[in-house]
Computed example of a mutant assay.
Amino acid sequence: MGDHPASSLPPRWCRWPQRELDLRLAELGLVINAPEPAVICRPCGYALQPNGECVTRHLADKHSIQKGLRHGLTSYIHSLFN
Rank of each mutant, 00 (worst) to 15 (best):
A26H: 13
G45P: 01
A38G: 05
A6K: 12
S75E: 13
E36C: 11
S64K: 14
R15V: 05
V55G: 04
Y46S: 14
Q49V: 10
L21N: 01
I65P: 00
N51L: 10
C54A: 14
K62Q: 11
P10A: 08
L80I: 12
P5W: 13
G52M: 07
K62S: 12
I32V: 15
Q18P: 03
L21D: 01
E53N: 14
H63M: 06
R12A: 08
T74N: 11
H71P: 00
Y46V: 07
P10L: 05
L59S: 04
V39A: 02
W13M: 04
L28M: 03
D3S: 13
N51D: 11
Q18L: 11
V31Q: 10
A38I: 03
R57Y: 07
P10V: 06
R57Q: 13
L48I: 01
G29A: 10
A47Q: 11
N82R: 14
S79D: 10
A34Q: 14
I32P: 00
I77E: 01
R15L: 13
L28R: 00
L21W: 07
G72F: 06
D22T: 09
Y46G: 04
P5R: 14
H63L: 08
P10W: 04
G68L: 09
L28G: 00
Q49D: 10
L73E: 01
L69D: 00
S8H: 11
N33K: 15
K62H: 14
R15H: 12
D61A: 14
H58T: 08
P17C: 05
R42V: 15
V31C: 08
G72L: 02
G2Q: 09
A34T: 12
A26V: 02
L30S: 01
W16N: 03
M1Q: 09
S75Q: 14
L23C: 08
Q18Y: 10
R19A: 12
L69A: 02
G2F: 09
N51M: 08
A47P: 06
L48P: 03
E53S: 15
T56G: 02
R12Q: 08
I40F: 06
I77C: 04
I65S: 02
L69S: 00
S75I: 09
Q18E: 14
S64I: 07
Q49Y: 08
L25N: 00
T56Y: 02
V31R: 12
D3F: 06
L80W: 10
A6G: 05
L21C: 09
S7G: 06
C14Q: 13
R42P: 00
C44I: 04
P17W: 06
A60Y: 08
L73G: 06
F81V: 06
R15Q: 09
L73C: 03
H71N: 09
Y76S: 07
Y46K: 15
Y46F: 13
W16R: 15
H78G: 02
G2W: 09
I65Y: 00
Q49L: 15
I32F: 05
I40E: 07
I65L: 09
C54R: 11
E27L: 13
N82L: 12
L25K: 05
A38K: 13
P10E: 04
L73A: 01
